[in-house]
Design a protein around this nucleic acid. Structure first.
Lengths: 341, 341
DNA sequence: GTTAGCACTCGACCTTAATGAGTGCTAACA
DNA sequence: TGTTAGCACTCATTAAGGTCGAGTGCTAAC
């Protein structure tokens, strides 16, 4: 189904226009763009053809045309102009991400926030769900009868546990725990291993059984939780900016959907091929998202696919800009995470 | 300005009704409530009086009445019925907060989320800004040429720094840092102190100057950042549920305001007296919040006032429920944080 | 002091008409 | 043969007028 050069140009002009205005595009508007010196009548003929081919839709007989899902698809695949991010944008981005090697989760979160500030659409980002191993444990007394348990895996978690333990005992206890638990994953903490810890503790110090149980519970929880990927969603409000969601109840339905992290996680779950991937309107297979497009990219940790960064916006989103933003940010993430085991 | 018992009852009935429906309340609706067997005509006379006294407003001559700010104020001060939280709600709450002594920030965040799930309004909660001291430092190698620096204060922060250091060197370095830095606050890290660290490190191991700078930077940043209180905002979407914000542009203005954490922080800043505090409509002194009420409560850490928990909702919010929720949650926070130094 | 009744008000909603942006089609032109 | 001017037609949008009904204030009777 080849399109003449002229049809391509017209289709592109229509979609570009529609992305900007969100209003059905009329033939006159296109003919006035001097770039292709054609009269509105000619444009009309071409538009009729494009509609017949399925790339355009006429909301009603006497209105301008609106791109169909197929129209957007064609645009994304073949028409779209490369978008060049501004130098300042890129620099700001580099600065925010590169300059400070922060903690894994913060990098991920940051990446999501950056994408939304760059594109001004709603974004989400999933953290890498992975089998994590204990790198180190630590115990620090805080307040009265309290100790803070710190578990270092690929990131750091902590919890305060009530236990009446001196600083010295903390150090002793931490040493024992480290000896037995370092480099184990959740599954590898066997009953035998726990027994050994218990025996060793009993032989060196006094410790209520409950405290040890609490500690091991938290350690287990922490490294198990790391297996589940988490998701951060940004800039949901931006939805209210788009005229396609000027219907409040429609906006609320989308809001409620985006509120539900599990649902969005599921949406992000599809294990697509490499590179940037766009799903337009009905391609998402979810009624609520019929008027949305979803553009995603996988980022990698080491060389495993780790998580996904995505943009949710109106179907008439600025694809070029979104593609460019996702491209650069995902590459930055990859670069930063490269050494991160 | 005393009100007769009958006027009080009528005013209360009107506000209760309006809180539920958000529609101007007519005399017939009130007279049909069997509790006070009066005809609509009588109610009308009383309503006219209440309007004259400033407690009610008539949007236009032939519509029902709506409470004025003064009406709400009177309701909150003298009329409102005690609201009793359901047993399951309280239990769920206890369970979520008490059972697991988690990290400070998580407790605070949790409290905000709980309040919003209980009241179904937008809530915010500020973390305690406080002078924090270093409790412990730790260094753990991760990946290649990377170490994770962990700073324990009242909570735990971490950052990955690129540095080519073995596990043994990490331990050595951590020991030195701990010796000099533990128990210091941001201001107390003097140049002299840093010099001493530098000297001791030079005498025992090889370490590029930049690495030490990075480490100290992060330590400093971390304990400084703790001085600034943070704020978490929950359930902003709930705004879309209220008919008073069915005007999209109005909703968006409020959204944008709530987006701006600094602005909300400022709003939360007022150092009010103890107990629960309500600001109704114009009492907030902010145009955007003219149609909102803000109910806040301070929570304490030890016995210092530490942070604030608040609810933002429409003026016709369910004050009784909000008061009850804030009361119980702030008390739970106090209880949990009591031992937290 | 309370209530029934009645005339009146005014927003909400529906209907109708006018407007104009945009179309498809035809015929003339290059 | 492709392009364009012109014209009749369509239909969403907006404004204007009309009806409806919820709710009021006031008066007179209880």
């Amino acid at each position: 189904m080849d399109l003449s050069e002229r049809k391509r140009k017209i289709l592109q002009a229509i979609i570009d226009e529609y992305i900007g205005t969100a209003e059905p595009v009329g033939s006159r508007a296109i003919s006035k763009k001097e770039s292709l010196g054609l009269s509105s009548a000619t444009i009309r003929n071409e538009m009729a053809d494009l509609e017949e081919m399925g790339y355009l839709i006429q909301p009603h007989t006497s209105s301008g045309r609106v791109p169909s899902d197929e129209g957007y698809r064609f645009y994304v695949n073949s028409l779209m102009q490369q978008y060049q991010l501004g130098v300042e944008a890129i620099n700001r981005l580099r600065e925010m991400m590169e300059n400070r090697v922060t903690q894994l989760e913060k990098i991920i979160k940051q990446a999501g926030a950056l994408t939304s500030s760059l594109t001004e659409y709603t974004t989400f980002v999933t953290t890498p769900g992975r089998i994590s191993k204990i790198k180190k444990l630590d115990l620090v007394p805080v307040g009265y009868h309290m100790v803070m348990l710190i578990v270092v895996t690929i990131t750091v978690s902590s919890r305060v546990i009530s236990a009446d333990v001196t600083e010295k005992e903390c150090a002793e206890l931490a040493k024992i725990l480290n000896k037995h638990l370092v480099n184990l994953s959740a599954e590898e903490i066997s009953f035998k291993c726990i027994e050994e810890i218990q025996r060793e503790i009993e032989s060196t110090m006094e410790l209520p059984a409950q405290v040890l149980i609490n500690i091991l519970n938290f350690v287990y929880e922490t490294i198990s939780a790391m297996n589940d990927s988490d998701i951060y969603i940004n800039n949901v409000n931006s939805i209210l900016k788009y005229p396609e969601y000027s219907d409040l109840s429609k906006a609320r339905r989308l809001f409620d959907f985006l509120e539900d992290k599990e649902a969005v996680k599921l949406l992000a779950g599809g294990d697509d091929e490499n590179g940037i991937n766009a799903k337009i309107g009905k391609e998402n297979g979810l009624d609520i998202l019929d008027d949305c497009s979803l553009v995603t990219v996988n980022y990698t940790l080491g060389d495993r696919r780790a998580g996904k960064l995505g943009v949710i916006g109106p179907k008439r989103m600025n694809y070029a800009k979104v593609f460019a933003s996702l491209d650069i940010i995902s590459k930055e993430i990859d670069k930063i995470l490269k050494d991160y085991l």
